[in-house]
Amino acid sequence: MDDLFVRITTRMILPFIQIYGLYVIIHGHLSPGGAFSGGSIFAASIVLYTLAYGLKPGQKRLPHHISSKIETGGILFFILIGLIGVALGYTFLTNQEAGFPMGEIGRVLSAGLIPVVTFALGLKVMSTVVTLFHTMMEEE
């Protein structure tokens, strides 16, 4: 899309979309939202960048080898966090009994493994949506 207004508006609102996506991911255990919605919002910013500036700069913003590493790394991190509970003698993905620091209710850094898992899942959802969009853009 070769349009000056779209490009300048995209460049202006891009950091706000990304900060809002990260906010929804990080505050997933406190406010409405979570990994899937926050990751989709973050991915929408990169999709918007690709639509406004073309496929090449969009792929330069998030190359395929990096997004595939984020994707596999997110799910492996999820499984490794779950295996901590197994290593300490509890079931898979145990939260409070396995000794994760629970913190004070209502803080960002609380609730044990929930923010960690939410962050990994959000990054994974983001890279999934972006990779799907870039792959389908390459096809046409």
Partner: peptide
């Protein structure tokens, strides 16, 4: 149990975390 005020996130990433996987 989870110290998370958002009950939906508490369910999908703590009680039902294997389902989320």
């Amino acid at each position: 149990d989870t110290h998370a005020p958002n009950l939906i996130t508490a369910i999908i990433t703590d009680y039902r975390a294997f389902d989320t996987l």
